[in-house]
């Protein structure tokens, strides 16, 4: 006890934690206030709002899963090269050469569960009417985060470069060629034309833009990799910051007025 006390009195400790052990109301408030991570929370919250049966913790679980995906994803990036020569073999090597390697398992099961957690979070928010004023805008941020979650999962689906990956992405991206006006098999595709020359062709439509090619190939793999590892996580991170901030600004977890 005295040793712990001594450590807590050192200059190093006190430079990091600016309050005593959080056993008094004052120190507990300071614990939340003076820590950048805990600062996501208010100092005090509605008792009804933080009940597990009210929130199901689904927003928190979604955030946990995002962190899990980020950590395991960064580790996977060390072993993975997004080219058709290497991608599949690198995934096999992960299994064959890394003892007790479960990063890919954690990443995959976590990704599936994150989609489910987002759905359940939205279900909870809907059923408690928590999208109603003043939280309309934050519901909208949430819908975009749902889309980003699905897109993250969809882009990640391609990366193992196995039969499941390439054909799931082929089925999914084939939808884009039926996009009205800007897909080459969509209604109105012939509207964009100069004289007899159509501007919307298999080599210039929205699907081509998505895949960087007419088929799911090397360019699509690289494109999905960059989206999956850089662009989409950054966008999701930014929107999550806004989402959490707005939860607090809009009055915390919802409750009856």
């Amino acid at each position: 006890m005295t040793l712990l006390k001594k450590i807590a009195e050192t200059q190093v400790w006190r430079s990091i934690f600016r309050h005593g052990y959080p056993s008094t109301p004052r120190n507990r408030a300071l614990a939340a206030l003076s820590n950048v991570f805990l600062h996501l929370h208010p100092v005090k919250a509605r008792k009804s709002g933080i009940r597990l049966s009210f929130t199901w913790c689904m927003g928190g679980i979604t955030f946990f899963l995002f962190l899990l995906e980020t950590i395991t994803g960064v580790l996977l990036m060390f072993y993975y090269r997004p080219t058709i020569e290497y991608a599949y073999n690198d995934i096999i090597a992960l299994r064959e050469h890394v003892p007790l390697g479960i990063m890919r398992e954690l990443h995959r099961w976590g990704a599936h569960m994150m989609v489910l957690a987002v759905w359940l979070h939205m279900l909870r928010v809907f059923l408690t009417g928590s999208y109603k004023p003043p939280r309309e805008f934050n519901w909208n941020i949430g819908v975009i985060l749902l889309l980003l979650t699905l897109l993250l999962s969809f882009t990640g689906y391609l990366l193992p470069w196995d039969q499941l990956a390439i054909w799931a992405i082929t089925v999914g991206s084939n939808m884009a060629r039926a996009h009205p006006v800007i897909g080459h098999e969509g209604p109105g595709a012939s509207l964009l034309a100069v004289g007899d020359v159509s501007l919307v062709t298999p080599a210039s439509d929205i699907r081509f833009g998505l895949l960087a090619g007419r088929f799911v190939g090397a360019a699509a793999l690289l494109r999905f990799y960059v989206l999956h590892c850089v662009a989409l996580p950054l966008a999701a991170g930014l929107l999550m910051a806004i989402h959490f901030w707005r939860v607090r600004k809009d009055g915390g977890i919802s409750g009856p007025m």
Partner: peptide, 10 residues
């Protein structure tokens, strides 16, 4: 309990 506020820590 919606008017009752509790400290988020703990």
């Amino acid at each position: 309990s919606s008017n009752k506020k509790v400290l988020v820590w703990p």
